Amino acid sequence: MTKPTAIRPPRSGAPDPDLLPEGLADRLPPRAAEAMRVTRAMVDAMAAHGYDPVQPPLVEFERSLAARMAGVRKNRMVRFTDPVSLRSLAVRADMTVQVGRIVATGMGDVPRPLRLSYAGQVLRIKGDGLDPEREQLQIGAEIVGADNVAAAAEAVLLAIEALRVAGATGISVDFTLPDLVDTLAERAHPMDAETTDAVRHELDAKDAGALTAVGGEAFLPLLYATGPFDTAIAKLEEFDRAIIDGGALGTRIAALREIAALVGDAARLTLDPTERHGFEYQSWFGFTIYADGLRGALGRGGTYRVTGEGKPGQPPHDEVATGFSLYPDPLVDANALPVASRIVFLPLGHDREAAAALRAEGWRTRAALTERDEAKALGCTHVLGASGPEAVQ
């Protein structure tokens, strides 16, 4: 995004009133137009597959934003007190949890599976790692009421398509199993809570020595079950057969294979079964999506559960869902600047019907407001003449 620039030097000892807070920035022409194009292309792709858009508010009660999904972190939210209700409010840091509230309340009676999409800005209290931006564009889709293989494959394929129509190339998808350690600790390799947490941490760090030291030696093969999908899934199967009586991961491995087959050659596929970064509330399946030439991940998705209170007088709400969130700011900023469009200068007293006809054909117009206005100074490529648009010399 375009970085803010001070317009006048600040008074000594006083903050510059024209500077924006750290991590926030203006997006100016033509980048703003590119952001709108990307958003429109992605939302249209989702609509074509039957996803209906929703528009949740920018600010909600903190309790509502934090209660819908396990793992949502309050410390990522910008919070303040509502002067009307005197309750804690929060600026959304993730629109997915807002969709959870919508489907549990206002759309609780709509038949499932329910397909919804959304697009809007989210704000975090600080940037993430090497990414200093606190405000991001989030575009996503959710399938509420289904978390099976078909739903997972649809989510992956739709995320790929949305990025592709927006201009991304060389798309790759990395699969993961967010609840892998919990599944093994419960069924095949019992561990107490403290050891389970330590094993998760060292698997996240990819530290073989530390993993052995905390009692997770049996999980060492998982550090090597990563990489291109076919090779990595074979290593995961070998791990499953070697240390687990009966194959506790059998159904998950079969599901991953089926999802990969449905995705086919739509994207390069990789697997990192223990990856948990960014998967705060996903359940058995997760994925991260990347594209060539763009920094970092462009989005994440997977299966999860929507929890919390439903409508007044009804029991607590709990249902499965599958979806994804894309953060296309790197795509917007990396795309080549749009080719200069044809803009017709409309002199004072111009033929309004002729100007309307040009706009219907795809031209842009800029009308003169005073006799001093000039086509070239206003960035116009043509002038409306008696016989139509004439190129600016």
Rank of each mutant, 00 (worst) to 15 (best):
E161N: 01
L211M: 08
A213G: 07
G250F: 12
A242H: 13
A234P: 09
A254W: 01
L298P: 06
L294H: 08
L220F: 00
S172Y: 06
F229W: 10
D197G: 13
V181F: 00
H189N: 02
R252I: 00
P178R: 11
L157I: 12
A218F: 05
A242R: 15
A291F: 07
A166L: 00
A248Y: 12
D204Q: 15
G296R: 08
P221M: 03
D272Q: 03
G278F: 05
A159E: 07
L177A: 14
R164G: 07
P178C: 11
Q282H: 15
A260S: 10
V199N: 14
I244H: 15
A218Y: 01
A159R: 10
G250L: 13
A232H: 05
Q282Y: 15
A266G: 08
V263S: 01
E275A: 12
A193S: 15
E237N: 08
L220G: 03
D292W: 04
T183D: 07
L157Y: 07
Y290N: 06
G296D: 11
G293H: 01
H201L: 01
I233T: 07
Q282R: 12
F229E: 09
G246F: 14
L256M: 15
P228G: 07
F287P: 02
I244D: 15
V165T: 15
D265G: 00
A297C: 00
A261D: 15
T251K: 09
D197Q: 13
A166V: 12
T251G: 09
Q282D: 14
D230C: 03
G215H: 11
T176F: 04
Y224W: 14
A193Y: 09
L236A: 04
Y290L: 02
W284E: 12
E186Y: 09
A232C: 09
I233E: 07
S172I: 10
A248S: 14
L249V: 06
A266Q: 11
T195P: 02
D174V: 13
P221D: 10
G264P: 04
R252Q: 11
E194P: 03
A185P: 06
Y281G: 03
A162D: 07
P221Q: 08
D192E: 14
T226Q: 13
P178F: 07
Y281Q: 01
R241Y: 10
G299Q: 06
K235A: 08
A210V: 01
S283C: 03
D182K: 02
V181W: 06
A159F: 02
L158M: 08
I160M: 13
G247P: 14
Y224T: 11
D265W: 03
A166I: 11
L180K: 04
F229G: 07
V181Y: 06
H201N: 11
R257A: 14
P190T: 08
I253A: 00
L211R: 05
D204W: 10
P190L: 02
D204Y: 11
A198W: 00
I289G: 06
L157W: 02
G209Y: 04
F175I: 13
G247L: 09
A266D: 10
A185R: 01
G247E: 13
T251M: 00
V181D: 12
G247Y: 10
F287N: 01
F219D: 07
